[in-house]
Design a protein around this nucleic acid. Structure first.
Lengths: 229, 229
DNA sequence: GCAACGTTTCGATCAGGATCGAAACGTTCA
DNA sequence: TGAACGTTTCGATCCTGATCGAAACGTTGC
């Protein structure tokens, strides 16, 4: 009877080291980083980081790709990001009565990417706004884009019509760990985030996965989507 | 920037101990167990188990309830079960090339409960059968009961009409870690599992969360649902 | 109130793994 | 080919946390 519990414990042990958790958290935007950069993120020497990265690759949480003399590490699959995000939600719910928002980084709470879509106050406010206009139906477990919603997003050039070609689901809720309410994920969430980057409404910060909302972005989110933020 | 990663690491450390993982795994059927029973499950002395249980309660993974001289422990919320289930999926995907099914307990793989619904070969086959008859649409991220499906399940006395009263979602996919394909969760999955217990199609085994499929159960699943198992 | 039982607290011990210095490896570029 | 750089391997050290014996605690039932 033990085996699956053992696998669970082994996986958890892999995430349980503060340095490795920092590395995983850093890679949750889906981008790749070199071993040296990740050593800085984890706050350890390169040789220690190498040991950690080796373990993460060996257990298939990360995959590595050689780019010249350096090695680029990234999350092995989107599923890994999704599980880590879920764990963060549980982690923050934490000790009863909760002490959560206080200890959370302000920039991360404001706006960040969650693998390929938007999260944080911005992500949740965007989902709320779309819902208020009846573009979207979304609760903690399921989500659906309405016809007017599809048309509305289509007016920005996003093709979100259901299609057999795409294996990926159109619209899915993703529980936001900092806001504790769902934001928009799936193909629709990813397309919206991509649009925001392209129009310079948001910009990636040099490190970390928090993003900066530009002035034009703030205007756009408010006037075009009715976001209250 | 570090804080959320730190929370993640702390949570993972909590699950990373083999004994605690066994305890959590044991409680994933949603039922409560006494401290003494859980000590046996974890394979440690009562005082060690007490130390583990204390940590799990302190970090809000478990909640405890006093029943006379003994204390009953159970998972704090369904979200905890959901996350653990997700972690198991990632854990089993594990090392490239995979060595998964071999090390997994046969009874668990055959049929088990996943908090409140059915999982394992039985759970996945049931979802497949419902899908083949166009009662259900289900992929890895979203699920929906069709009108004929709602009517079909209604003929067993299950009231699965959408309702504002129920906060809980009707139908949701849950990735099965042993089969690596989605099975049916949400209100519909829970109702179906309850039906199966009531009609004695399946029985809980004394310990663990695997279930036994009775002879009448096997007949019922095959003839009534078209399950190939 | 006392005895019995399940459970927790305390204290000491022990082990696994994270860490870094030193050195080797492998790739790129001159 | 040799030098420079990023990265990994090796070896030794150190520290956190899991473990159990012993004892205390709290509840129930007589």
């Amino acid at each position: 009877m033990p085996t699956i519990a053992r696998e669970l414990a082994d996986l958890a042990a892999l995430i349980a080291d503060p340095g490795r958790a920092l590395i995983l958290s850093r890679l949750m935007d889906g981008r790749a980083q070199t071993a040296g950069e990740l050593a800085l993120v984890a706050g350890v020497t390169p040789q220690t980081a190498s040991w950690h990265l080796g373990r993460l690759v060996q257990h298939a949480l990360l995959k590595v790709e050689r780019r010249g003399p350096r090695r680029l590490y990234r999350l092995a699959t989107p599923l890994v990001a999704q599980i880590l995000e879920g764990m963060m939600t549980v982690a923050v719910t934490g000790p009863l009565g909760s002490r959560p928002p206080a200890r959370i980084d302000a920039a991360m709470r404001r706006a960040r990417t969650c693998y390929d879509h938007l999260a944080g106050e911005l992500g949740v406010a965007l989902a709320d706004a779309l819902r208020e206009r009846d573009y979207l139906v979304l609760d903690q477990e399921v989500g659906e884009l309405t016809e007017v919603g599809t048309a509305f997003l289509g007016s920005f050039g996003l093709d979100l019509r259901p299609s057999a070609r795409h294996r990926r689901v159109l619209c899915r809720p993703c529980l936001d760990w900092s806001e504790r309410r769902p934001h928009l994920a799936g193909r629709a969430g990813a397309a919206l985030a991509e649009l925001a980057f392209q129009r310079d409404w948001i910009r990636r910060r040099p490190q970390g996965r928090s993003v900066e909302i530009t002035d034009t972005g703030l205007d756009a989110f408010r006037s075009l989507f009715g976001v209250r933020i």
